[in-house]
C-alpha cells in the first residue's frame, strides 16, 4: 500500500479534537490584527500574536498587510482592496480544508487550484442607492483539482471542506461585530 502525503498532519488534528472535546476552555482562540492609517485610504495591518490553548501564542514572524484602493477609485493602489482580503481568506481556508480532508480520506492530491470571484455593486458603499448592500452580492469559487480520486470523491472533498471552513461560515452566516472608540 502506498502512503499518501499531502503534507497535513491529520493525526495531530484528530488528537486535538479528542483532547478539546473534554477541554472546551482550551479551544477558545482569539485572533488579533493591529491596523494603522498611512495616508488617504492606504493602511497597514500587522499580525503576529494570538491567544489559544489557554495562553498567548505567536506566529514565527510578524506579517504586514497593505491595503489601499485601485486607481479607478482615485487612490494610489499601494495594495489590494480590503474586500479582496476576504477572497484571500476564503480561498486559503477552503484550500487548506481540501488538503486536510483529502489526507484524512487517503486521497493523494497533485494540484489544487481555485479562482474566487466576488460580485460587488459599489453603488452601496458610495451611497448611490440605498437598496444596494455594501458587501458582496455573491461569491463564486471554482476549484480545479488533480488527484487520485473520482469526480464524485473530489466533489465530496470540496463539499466537506466548506462544511468545516471558518471563513466560509464567517461569510455565509451573520456575526456580531462590535466597533468601539477606545
Amino acid at each position: 500500500m502506498t502512503t499518501i502525503d499531502n503534507g497535513v498532519n491529520v493525526q495531530a488534528l484528530l488528537d486535538a479534537r479528542e483532547v478539546l472535546k473534554g477541554a472546551p476552555e482550551a479551544a477558545q482562540f482569539t485572533w488579533r490584527a493591529s491596523s494603522r492609517w498611512q495616508n488617504g485610504v492606504h493602511s497597514t495591518t500587522t499580525i503576529q500574536n494570538f491567544f489559544g490553548l489557554g495562553q498567548e501564542q505567536s506566529h514565527k514572524s510578524e506579517t504586514v498587510f497593505t491595503a489601499d484602493h485601485p486607481e479607478v477609485f482615485a487612490a494610489e493602489d499601494n495594495g489590494i482592496t480590503p474586500i479582496e482580503y476576504l477572497l484571500v481568506g476564503l480561498a486559503s481556508c477552503l484550500t487548506a480544508g481540501v488538503a486536510s480532508v483529502a489526507q484524512n480520506r487517503g486521497i493523494q492530491l497533485r494540484s489544487v487550484e481555485s479562482t474566487v470571484e466576488g460580485n460587488h455593486d459599489i453603488r452601496g458603499i458610495l451611497g448611490a442607492d440605498s437598496d444596494v448592500r455594501n458587501g458582496f452580492n455573491d461569491i463564486k469559487v471554482t476549484f480545479t483539482i488533480d488527484a487520485d480520486a473520482s469526480q464524485q470523491d473530489i466533489e465530496a472533498l470540496v463539499a466537506q471542506s466548506q462544511k468545516r471552513s471558518a471563513v466560509f461560515d464567517a461569510l455565509t452566516n451573520p456575526t456580531n461585530v462590535t466597533v468601539e472608540v477606545a
Binding site: D138, E155, A156, V158, A159, Q160, F168, D169, N173
Partner: peptide
C-alpha cells in the same frame, strides 16, 4: 436560519453546499 437581528431572520448563504452534501 442563523440568527434574528432587529426583527429580521438571517439565513445562511451556504444553501448550495447543503444541497451538494445531501446529493453526494
Amino acid at each position: 436560519w442563523a440568527a434574528v437581528r432587529d426583527g429580521r431572520a438571517l439565513f445562511s448563504g451556504g444553501l448550495r453546499n447543503v444541497f451538494s452534501l445531501a446529493d453526494l
